[in-house]
């Protein structure tokens, strides 16, 4: 072979994502055949493996639109927004936003929110480990009753709240084992809590007001103010039931009075 200019990795990279580009210069086959089908192996490996990664994170979105539509939609996404990180489990953060703007999917307005929920599940699955707050630690904190409203909590790193004008949590549940899609009222807005309890990621449909409470707590708002915000959002908000729910699923990791650590 005559030494020649190697095609740069920039040229090779551009050709990977754009099948309309010609095969970069300096690429050959031993039998002098057109190297384009050979380059296509790389093109296919890249796009297919990235679509597979997206499919692994968003199985319910895929079930809702069907495999063919999903893979076509994901192929547009991966070419437009290839991963910036080498850690593929994080790939897809921008997919919900992409879906929202993807015209062929506009007839399914809930799709982007389902994608948000699925991304939150993957984030929760790989989130940092932290010991959950026990009922015991909680009751130790409670005796200073006059200052109960000042208590602050830390949420488990896996916790996320997804709010939607659509029934996202029910839609997600309907696609799990024993789910029933017929029972879902699509246009009944829902809020879902995503949390990893032990090693399992849960999706819990939250009663009215509870999402406001969890979001406030997550932002460091003290118990009294968070409860006030939740009550303002819904008169049905039940603080005792909410704390019991959060503690029983390990969504809280510690409680403290500002200036003093209680657990």
């Amino acid at each position: 072979m005559t030494p020649a200019r190697a095609c740069s990795q920039a040229e090779f990279a551009a050709a990977l994502l754009d099948p309309a580009l010609p095969c970069p210069p300096g690429i050959v086959a031993w039998n002098a055949s057109d190297p384009t089908p050979r380059l296509a192996v790389y093109r296919n490996n890249v796009v297919r493996s990235l679509i597979d990664a997206i499919a692994e994170t968003f199985p319910v979105v895929q079930a809702l639109v069907g495999v063919t539509f999903f893979r076509a939609m994901a192929s547009v996404f991966v070419r437009q927004a290839p991963p910036r990180s080498r850690i593929l489990v994080h790939y897809g953060e921008e997919f919900p936003k992409f879906i929202e703007q993807f015209a062929p999917a506009s007839r399914l307005p809930y799709l982007a929110d389902v994608a948000l929920l699925e991304m939150a599940r993957v984030r929760a699955y790989h989130a940092a480990d932290a010991r959950p707050l026990t009922r015991q630690a909680m009751s130790l904190a409670l005796p200073c009753e006059d200052r109960v409203g000042e208590l602050c909590f830390f949420c488990h790193p896996s916790v996320a709240v997804i709010r939607s004008p659509y029934a996202v949590a029910s839609l997600w549940s309907a696609h799990q084992v024993d789910g029933d899609i017929g029972a879902v009222d699509l246009f009944a807005g829902e809020a879902a809590l995503v949390v990893r309890e032990n090693l399992d990621v849960l999706v819990l449909r939250l009663p009215p007001g509870t999402a406001d409470f969890v979001i406030a707590i997550q932002q460091g708002t003290c118990l009294g103010d968070a409860a006030g915000m939740a009550k303002a959002a819904s008169a049905q908000f039940d603080l005792t039931a909410t704390l019991a729910l959060l503690i029983s699923h390990g969504a809280l990791t510690s409680v403290h009075l500002p200036g003093k650590t209680l657990s």
Partner: peptide, 10 residues
């Protein structure tokens, strides 16, 4: 990698 990560061995 070249800006993006291609998830393939090039």
């Amino acid at each position: 990698t070249h800006g993006a990560f291609f998830n393939d061995l090039l």
